[in-house]
């Protein structure tokens, strides 16, 4: 009975750790789950063996399975199944090695200065020059965002998708997947100057900590004009309903 409780408690925690992956699509990394589960199982074991009655209750079914003469058949079945299970798990692990684990920073720290369009941009304090229109002239701002949308659909949409969710036509050929702009955890966490840098310099401009350099994002400085870049940034925020972080907070 206590053995079942022990298994149930551990399964509950395992399910809890698996839930973000199954329900929200944000899996807890398997490396972390392994570590967590190891200590969770240990803790549950400790809590359930504080008293002698508890320990005996927990181990009694196992002991009886191993020692009770009347359960010889179950024992024999177990001793056949155990090595088979071990062999199967080893085979499973060895035939599906998977690509190696990697350490990569998705939002690496930007450089202090970006050189593009023959100018030097100091990213510290850099604002979107078109952002001011949002309050001063909302009609013109809407128009700029619409133009940004045109830029987007001519250039970015193939990877980042029609719904800006990072799932465009080519997206599944990329690894890592293109960044989605929807949701509150990508561009909503960033300043516009950061987007400017990433668009202008692309994957090749990533610093070392962003590597292994596997971002497929091109450097757009030779394709888009400076104004087009700022406009497309306006569009990204406008369309997804996100607000950029400002230098004040």
């Amino acid at each position: 009975m206590r053995l079942i409780k022990f298994l149930a408690v551990n399964l509950f925690f395992y399910a809890l750790l698996k839930a973000p992956g199954l329900l929200a699509g944000k899996p807890v990394p398997s490396s972390v789950i392994t570590m967590y589960m190891f200590f969770i199982v240990m803790t549950v074991l400790l809590v359930m063996t504080i008293t002698d009655e508890g320990a005996n209750g927990l181990f009694a079914p196992i002991r009886s399975l191993l020692e009770d003469p009347s359960r010889a058949l179950a024992r024999k079945v177990l001793f056949v199944l155990l090595p088979v299970a071990a062999a199967l798990s080893v085979q499973y692990l060895s035939t599906d090695p998977g690509p190696p684990f990697e350490l990569r920073s998705a939002h690496p720290a930007p450089p202090g200065v970006v050189r593009a369009y023959g100018k030097v941009y100091e990213l510290d304090g850099l604002e979107n020059p078109l952002r001011a229109l949002e309050k001063e002239n909302p009609a013109a701002f809407k128009e700029l965002a619409r133009e940004g949308g045109e830029v987007y659909f001519r250039n970015c949409f193939f990877c980042h998708g029609a719904r800006l969710d990072g799932r465009g036509h080519y997206a599944y050929a990329m690894d890592p997947l293109p960044m989605p702009f929807t949701g509150s955890d990508t561009i909503a966490q960033l300043k516009e100057s950061y987007l400017f840098w990433r668009i202008v310099k692309g994957g090749p401009g990533l610093p070392r900590e962003g590597g292994p350099n596997i971002s497929s994002m091109p450097a757009w400085e030779n394709e888009l004009t400076e104004e087009e870049v700022w406009k497309v940034i306006l569009f990204l925020y406008d369309y997804t309903g996100n607000r950029p972080r400002s230098w004040k907070d």
């Binding site: 450089p111 202090g112 100091e122």
Partner: peptide, 12 residues
């Protein structure tokens, strides 16, 4: 470095 904040950034 920019994150550490131990020393001024040197890019400018």
């Amino acid at each position: 470095t920019r994150e550490g904040g131990r020393a001024p950034a040197l890019e400018g």
